[in-house]
Design a binder for these strands. Structure first.
Length: 543
RNA sequence: GGCGGCGUAGCUCAGUUGGUAAGAGCGCUCGACUCAUAAUCGAGAGGUCGGCAGUUCAAGUCUGCCCGCCGCUACCA
């Protein structure tokens, strides 16, 4: 029976270009996983979209003298273009700016409110009289009361690392205008996370196969005790609060609405298909599996807050797994486009072919620990592994076949033990890589596929078809035919990672489109396609 | 400060519930081959598994302390 899979992908924040850390953290793994599931016949719904609300976007808009919508439109267009270049296969990539999303967010808010999981409280916040705006903690700067550092942020001092309360800053000033902020009382709605503490703990302790950094981190939050959390902000850019009582100038907090995007996007997708109820197959179906692809900084939102919201709402499915990735680091530091650390996705796409970039990043996915990446590392992965082992394998086999057998797949004749053995190895490659993909061990599954390619190279070196071509054409036919069948099988394993070149390789082999996670081989006498190298080597900085 | 993760070969990383002489890829050395994008294949060198002390018949794997790196710390998203 075919499985029902929701591939939920972190919503990129439309405040600037995304970088390779984001690509490796969430987008590439989700696409690989979704493609695998489509190949084995699962019903996949892969959704995400641009996250368009929040203070940083309004600040940037002010700085540039444009509307927040202009900022959002610019980066949303860039993301869509990136995904297109990378051949990301979304079922829907929308934004949180749609009417549908606002309506679904308000529905979730109202339901939680009516069930008593949201209440109203007041607190004191810094307000910038010049910018006429309440300031998030990190937009208040001043002198650290602990170490005297002059440019401490309101949430944390970058010098001594201590967590701060902006009220404790000496000589506080607004990061926006430099003005001295004043304290004002403000009312907000709070999500009562404490209502779900026990239920969340029980649920989390029952999770199997979750990465330990995800599970331990989440359980740590539970053990420390959850805190109720404000879910509205003093801002005019966001989703309207669907109940009266707070007065103007307040919106729903961007993070509360962003996670709801997984649900609203499913509804938008269903409506766009002309089957408006179809979202229920994923969200109200206990058999459905939900996988959330995010970076580790988002673990609390996906393993604590969003599940709590779902529990409170009732009748919707909780995450099956949250395979959060760690960080990609450049020269030891976390990638950051705002600080210019590491390549942005547009920069990387300008430098590398999409499939080659996908290979290099997939081979370095930070699944267990932070992974150090450099342009040298990307070039090494492409030149020393991808081109040398896989690209060259396809090229050497096809070249020999074209030359010796009139550009068509030869008839293998009876197979010898070593022929059967190679094909068994490739079949095993597909079995093993599928198991690893199921566990979201994407790096390992790619490695497995490469080992399959090495096995074919070793087989060729052992049977030396370039020699037998002069002495035993039947043996040569067997060798090359078996190698072609093996390569056909490997294109299946590589396809989730490198869809374009895998399809190109199949065309060269004369193989039909992939049908299932299995080796099918190529019929004898099938004419080969136009042969060309699958990948080009990249120049390295030192060349 | 608190919490979490990490610290394993020159580099990038794997090492399930503790158990045969510690692994992979790349790099390096030697050899084979020369069909192929000087690509491939084989062999080899290379590690006190951050440090110290424990538990155990047995620890990279468990416990404690220490050192270092990264992240989070609930109002960045």
């Amino acid at each position: 029976m075919s499985r029902t899979i929701l591939v939920a992908v972190a919503w990129p924040y439309a405040s600037g270009s995304r970088h390779l850390g984001h690509l490796a953290g969430a987008y590439l793994p989700s696409d690989i996983f979704a493609r695998y599931h489509r190949m084995i016949g699962s019903r996949v719904l892969m959704v995400s979209g641009s996250d368009v609300h929040g203070t940083p976007i309004t600040v940037r808009a002010d700085q540039e003298g444009v509307s927040p919508q202009e900022i959002v439109d610019r980066y949303h267009a860039e993301f869509v273009s990136n995904w297109d270049d990378l051949n990301m296969q979304w079922d829907l990539f929308t934004t949180t700016g749609t009417e549908n999303h606002h309506a679904v967010t308000q529905d979730v808010f109202m339901r939680l409110y009516e069930k008593g999981h949201i209440d109203k409280r007041s607190s004191e916040q810094f307000y910038d009289p010049e910018a006429q705006r309440f300031l998030p903690d990190r937009y208040v700067e001043g002198t650290c009361p602990h170490c005297g550092y002059k440019d401490a942020r309101g949430d944390q001092c970058d010098n001594c690392g201590r967590t701060l309360d902006p009220i404790d800053l000496i000589e506080p000033r607004s990061k926006l205008s430099g003005a001295t902020p004043e304290l004002r009382t403000t009312e907000h709605f709070y999500l009562r996370l404490t209502d779900f503490e026990e239920q969340l703990g029980e649920w989390l302790r029952g999770r199997k196969g979750w990465r330990k950094h995800v599970l331990n981190f989440s359980l740590g939050w539970i053990e420390e005790g959850l805190q109720d959390r404000a879910i509205t902000r003093d801002i005019d850019w966001g989703v309207d609060i669907p109940v009266d009582g707070l007065g103007p100038g307040k919106k729903i907090y961007v993070w509360f609405d962003a996670v709801i995007g997984y649900l609203s996007a499913a509804k938008e997708w269903a409506a766009s298909q002309g089957t408006p109820e179809a979202w229920r197959d994923w969200w109200e179906n206990p058999e459905a599996e939900h996988y959330y692809f995010i970076g580790k900084d988002n673990v609390p939102f996906h393993a604590i807050i969003w599940p709590a919201m779902l529990m409170g709402y009732g009748g919707l499915e909780l995450p099956t797994d949250v395979p959060a990735n760690q960080y990609v680091t450049f020269k030891g530091g976390k990638a950051s486009s705002s600080r210019g650390i590491g390549l942005t996705i547009p920069e990387a796409l300008a430098a590398y072919e999409p499939d080659a970039l996908r290979y290099a990043m997939a081979a370095n996915l930070p699944e267990q620990s932070d992974t150090e990446i450099s342009e040298e590392e990307i070039a090494r992965r492409i030149n020393e592994e991808l081109v040398a082992t896989w690209g060259n394998l396809v090229n050497r086999v096809l070249s020999m076949t074209a030359k010796n057998f009139d550009g068509a797949v030869p008839d293998p004749g009876p197979l010898a033990a070593e022929d059967e053995s190679l094909l068994a190895t490739i079949d095993e490659t597909l079995v093993t890589s599928a198991q690893q993909l199921e566990r979201v061990e994407l790096r390992a599954a790619l490695r497995t596929a490469m080992e399959g390619a090495q096995a074919v190279n070793a087989y060729l070196n052992a049977l030396e078809p370039w020699k037998t071509a002069k002495t035993d054409i039947e043996r040569t036919a067997t060798t090359l035919s078996v190698a072609i069948d093996a390569i056909e099988g490997l294109t299946v394993a590589f396809s989730p990672y490198m869809p374009v070149t895998s399809a190109a390789a199949r065309q060269m082999l004369g193989a039909p489109e992939i049908d299932g996670w299995t080796r099918r081989g190529v019929e004898p006498a099938t004419p080969l396609g136009q042969i060309a190298p699958l990948f080009a080597k990249v120049e390295t900085a030192t060349d």
